[in-house]
Design a protein around this nucleic acid. Sequence first.
DNA 1: TTATAAGATGATAATGATTATCATTTTCAA
DNA 2: TTGAAAATGATAATCATTATCATCTTATAA
Lengths: 132, 132
Amino acid sequence: MLYSYHHVNYKRSSLRDNLLAIVQGTNTHPTAQELYELLRNHYPGVGLATVYRNLKILVEQGFIVKVEIKGSSERFEARLDRHYHLICESCGSISDIPLQVDQDLDSRVEEVTGCRVIKHEIQFFGLCKNCR
Amino acid sequence: MLYSYHHVNYKRSSLRDNLLAIVQGTNTHPTAQELYELLRNHYPGVGLATVYRNLKILVEQGFIVKVEIKGSSERFEARLDRHYHLICESCGSISDIPLQVDQDLDSRVEEVTGCRVIKHEIQFFGLCKNCR
DNA sequence: TTATAAGATGATAATGATTATCATTTTCAA
DNA sequence: TTGAAAATGATAATCATTATCATCTTATAA
């Protein structure tokens, strides 16, 4: 069965399914490099470029989300609901914040700026539970 | 007169003074490349590496702040008070949000997570006044 | 004022993360 | 089963940023 999205009909790839499962099975927001190393347990000959390619496809398909944190490589997560992140300034880990996303914030900023606001993101910086 | 900070005694450099003045004179959050091009009006022979070097020093000295926005190169601003940013998804411009920084947010996240929270940043995504 | 040590500069090489290319292999629908 | 399109692995290319190094400048102390 094909599943298609923008311009391309993607074909089934067990490698990509496996990659998705790995991202879905963690909450550590892994980088492409980390996923590459995990995937090599199942696909010893896999190339790093293939991991990047498939991550891009999985993002495009809406199965995972790319998380861009300053000072770090791209990271990926499978949580699709909006939420905020905390970056540990000691160990560099990223944790999800169990806090409701503030829906009013966007409209408040619209009123104050005259801009059109579609969404917002918040990053908290500090020390994670282990490091504090 | 020397002014020193961490490990190094920096010597006066009119080029660096000029670079600082340029950053202080704009609210467009320019990139190193953009500042390089502006600086060449006064210093035609300046090298890009020198701009990067001096930006790093100015950040270290606390005269300017590096702004990291996803999908974009490093940007710099001379506003030292905390504030939020809006990134225009059409033209890529960055604007400052005239909104009070929420001081309670950090302690609320501390309560909810058990992490130590030092600060937070918010990016709004949408369309700037020109593009909307 | 001048000698000198430390910084500053420009040119360029190196780095690191990500993307593009290309030849080959695999998938899937007819 | 076959053929077109996608997937893959290897590798080259790209882009932003940083490091290196030889040369030039600055600040200080004699």
